[in-house]
């Protein structure tokens, strides 16, 4: 099937090569586009390290096939505003919001979503909304402060 799929990734148009139609978005972003902020912690949708925004909503890039994303906008940490990245990083420094840093991309993406007013019902607590992002170093309490300061 000669389907030309265009993905809008971090504001740029990318024509998805055929070979990537049936492969994971995660691998496309990392291997083809070198967007290394996107991390694979589990590949099973349980850890959130691979979170990207698809049309503004957070999703796990490890459970998305490239071929289902035609014409959609995909944002990784690299595509966030420099302002947001700096601000989040600075708050992390201030509160100790990371240790090994492997979960940080996922939390950065979630923070960007929350900062844009992201919510499921308009009244969720950040605890529930961030429960899909595992931090094995366990700095949730610090991340709570980071998110609170950010919003």
């Amino acid at each position: 099937m000669n389907t030309r799929l265009i993905l809008h990734i971090n504001g740029n148009e990318h024509s998805l090569p055929d070979a990537w139609h049936g492969r994971r978005l995660l691998d496309y972003l990392r291997h083809e586009l070198s967007l290394m902020s996107v991390k694979e912690g589990c590949g099973e949708g349980d850890c959130g390290a691979c979170t990207v925004l698809v049309d503004g909503e957070p999703m796990c890039s490890c459970l998305l096939l490239g071929g289902v994303l035609a014409n959609r906008s995909i944002v990784t940490v690299e595509g966030l505003s420099d302002d947001h990245r700096q601000r989040f990083a600075q708050l992390c420094e201030q509160h100790g919001g990371l240790q090994c840093g492997f979960c940080t991309s996922g939390f950065t993406m979630m923070s960007a979503w929350l900062a844009e007013g992201g919510s499921e019902t308009g009244q969720n607590s950040s605890d529930k909304l961030l429960a899909g992002n595992i931090c094995r170093c366990g700095v949730y309490q610090q991340l709570k402060k980071v998110i609170a300061d950010l919003l």
């Binding site: 099973e44 429960a131 595992i134």
Partner: peptide, 17 residues
């Protein structure tokens, strides 16, 4: 063999320390 069934604490399980 994964985070779903081997239950490491999540954000929602964080306890005030």
């Amino acid at each position: 063999p994964g985070y779903l069934d081997n239950r490491v604490p999540t954000f929602a399980d964080a306890v005030p320390v």
